[in-house]
Deep mutational scan, measured.
Amino acid sequence: MDVFMKGLSKAKEGVVAAAEKTKQGVAEAAGKTKEGVLYVGSKTKEGVVHGVATVAEKTKEQVTNVGGAVVTGVTAVAQKTVEGAGSIAAATGFVKKDQLGKNEEGAPQEGILEDMPVDPDNEAYEMPSEEGYQDYEPEA
């Protein structure tokens, strides 16, 4: 019985440690998101679009440190934060509304985080759909 109880105690310690790591990862992701939003706020009209992409990228980098179902929630929060940063930029006159959601080359930025393969159960990952990809044929 002692062996059984000791095993359960060790398992509990492992769960607590994993929860603490997840909590730490979420806190880091939130900190990076805040950094990115402050970065966007300090940019001029020309830099705002690039700044919004930076927020998304920093958040995406930190999301990889967070495991399990938390990833889905962090990704949703990050996307809403990026959308909010863009709205703030438009409201303050840093950028025109028609410039939001495009990178410096004018290509749409939507789907940055949505296409990231995420499995809350950590069982399997699927690649994003290939609808947006084109076949590449090298020139002879």
Rank of each mutant, 00 (worst) to 15 (best):
M1G: 00
M1N: 00
D2N: 15
V3D: 01
M5I: 00
M5T: 01
K6R: 04
K6C: 03
K6D: 03
K6L: 04
K6N: 07
G7S: 15
G7R: 15
G7E: 03
S9E: 14
A11T: 03
A11I: 15
V16W: 13
V16N: 06
A17N: 11
A17V: 09
A17L: 06
A19M: 07
A19E: 00
E20W: 06
E20M: 09
T22H: 02
T22I: 14
K23P: 00
Q24M: 15
Q24V: 06
Q24E: 06
Q24S: 07
V26A: 02
V26F: 14
A27T: 03
E28F: 07
E28W: 05
E28Y: 04
G31L: 11
G31P: 00
K32N: 02
T33Y: 02
T33L: 06
T33V: 14
K34A: 10
G36A: 11
G36R: 15
L38Y: 12
Y39R: 09
Y39W: 10
S42L: 11
K43H: 04
T44E: 00
K45W: 15
K45Y: 04
G47I: 08
G47M: 07
G47H: 13
V49L: 13
H50G: 06
V52F: 04
V52Y: 15
T54C: 15
V55L: 14
A56N: 02
K58G: 00
K58V: 10
T59E: 00
K60W: 09
Q62T: 11
Q62F: 08
V63C: 05
V63K: 01
V63Q: 01
T64F: 13
T64P: 02
N65H: 04
N65C: 09
G68T: 12
A69D: 03
T72D: 10
T72G: 11
G73Y: 06
V74L: 15
T75Q: 14
T75F: 15
T75G: 07
A76P: 01
A76G: 06
V77Q: 02
A78E: 02
A78N: 01
K80D: 02
T81R: 02
T81G: 04
V82A: 12
E83F: 09
E83V: 11
E83Y: 03
G84W: 09
A85L: 14
A85R: 04
G86N: 12
G86D: 04
S87H: 11
I88K: 03
G93L: 09
F94P: 03
F94D: 04
F94W: 15
F94I: 04
V95T: 10
K96M: 14
D98N: 08
D98Q: 06
K102W: 15
N103R: 08
E104V: 06
E105I: 01
G106H: 07
G106P: 13
P108D: 08
P108C: 10
Q109W: 12
E110N: 08
I112W: 07
L113K: 10
D115F: 11
D115T: 11
D115W: 03
D115P: 03
M116I: 09
P117H: 04
P117I: 05
D119C: 12
D119Y: 03
P120W: 05
P120F: 07
P120D: 05
P120H: 09
P120E: 06
D121K: 10
N122Q: 08
E123N: 08
E123R: 04
E123K: 11
E123G: 08
A124Y: 14
Y125N: 11
Y125T: 10
Y125R: 06
Y125C: 08
M127R: 05
S129C: 07
E131W: 05
G132N: 15
G132Q: 12
G132L: 10
G132H: 05
Y133E: 11
Q134F: 09
Q134V: 03
Y136T: 05
E137L: 07
P138K: 05
P138Q: 04
